[in-house]
């Protein structure tokens, strides 16, 4: 089964049982999920911190594009790529 691409109105959020937390012992952000601990890189962290289940994908992309004064289509590509892989792993739902 292939997963259809997200609509720009989708509101991605962390899946139930998944938490973003700051790990003081290792001085880094971590994604805590069932039997898994993931360490997001800087870009992934910026994206995940905006995935709260209420914000729309379009707004998340716009925000990041302006925060980094980056090309919107490039940001969109990065965000969609990351979310697609995290949805498959059930870290994110939309």
């Amino acid at each position: 089964m292939t997963i259809p691409p997200l609509s720009s109105e989708a509101r991605p959020g962390l899946a139930p049982g998944v938490r973003l937390a700051f790990d003081k012992a290792r001085d880094q952000w971590v994604v805590l999920a069932p039997e898994r601990v993931l360490v997001p890189d800087e870009t992934a962290l910026e994206i995940l911190q905006r995935c709260n289940g209420t914000r729309q994908l379009d707004d998340i992309i716009n925000e990041l594009a302006s925060a980094y004064s980056a090309d919107r289509s490039e940001i969109e590509h990065d965000v969609r790529d990351l979310l697609a892989s995290l949805i498959e792993k059930r870290i994110v739902i939309a």
């Binding site: 089964m1 039997e35 498959e88 059930r90």
Partner: peptide, 11 residues
């Protein structure tokens, strides 16, 4: 795993 991709994680 292939059939259920995106529906359930299979370890």
């Amino acid at each position: 795993r292939e059939r259920l991709r995106g529906q359930i994680v299979i370890d």
